[in-house]
Design a protein around this nucleic acid. Sequence first.
DNA 1: CTTGATTAGTTCGACTTCGTACTATATATA
DNA 2: TATATATAGTACGAAGTCGAACTAATCAAG
Lengths: 156, 156
Amino acid sequence: MDKPDTPTKSGDPRVFFELFNEVGIISQLSRALFEARLPDGLLVTHFSVVNHLARLGDGKTPLEIANAFQVPKTTMTHTLAGLEKAGFITTEPNADDKRSKRIKLTKAGHAFRDQAVQLLGPDLERLAQEIALEDAAAALPFLRSLRTYLDNNRAD
Amino acid sequence: MDKPDTPTKSGDPRVFFELFNEVGIISQLSRALFEARLPDGLLVTHFSVVNHLARLGDGKTPLEIANAFQVPKTTMTHTLAGLEKAGFITTEPNADDKRSKRIKLTKAGHAFRDQAVQLLGPDLERLAQEIALEDAAAALPFLRSLRTYLDNNRAD
DNA sequence: CTTGATTAGTTCGACTTCGTACTATATATA
DNA sequence: TATATATAGTACGAAGTCGAACTAATCAAG
């Protein structure tokens, strides 16, 4: 009896449709923006992995990195192969588990990350002039909770 | 001289880094969620195109549809080929321009769209129980403005 | 009307993504 | 210890995405 008298269901799905649609397009466009600033064959995924290792510390295993980015481990194998070919990482044996590896950032990897951040800077500063930083910061908790929900409810 | 006394730059880029990171993961996870509800070989892109034609009217050209989704026309050729093979669209000659086509939704295409919306309903209702609809609605204007900004500032 | 430049759409090739199957190592159980 | 199960990583193949080059049709300029 506490049902509202509108004919639409309580959770009007159209808001979510539009939400996911906007998110998808932003993902696509921001990816293109980032990649326009990166050296030739390097993608956002490459930068993201290097950035992750630079911020949280290297020595992680491929699987740990794959889990951090919610991608299959086969995808991470491919991404890491590209980073190794570029000279940005090296792989070392994992003393704790001989099946595994530890990924280390090289000097070139750190330099790549610093340079990319610097090249992206002007774009982000211009963005900050149009999109208030507070608005972006205010949206983050919502996006985090949405991501967490989706993450916890995969593949029922 | 109006610079704040913190060492970080005025537009701290880390907020945007995290913002785009969350958006990317949400895009990826929501895509997977949607596709788990769609018939075998059909992707979110297929649904999105059919939904677009159902909501805004069919008879659009492939290029118009490609522009609406910000994808290259070659990608749309591929997507439309899949939809035609599935029997959800037909192509008719464009009387105004013989190089072009007009894309029409078939009955099966409408049915596919209605059924997909219905199948997605329970997921979205469950989502609405965890993520307040008001929060989603509140985030939309910000996401729209971000998308618009990125859209207007592509490829300088 | 004819020539040159544009545009709509397709084909082709390179690349990313990711599921399946496999190998090697680790862990649990008898 | 022996065996079964689970896990880390790779190899391979199928499918999506997209840039470059191409064809056909349109438009602009003389």
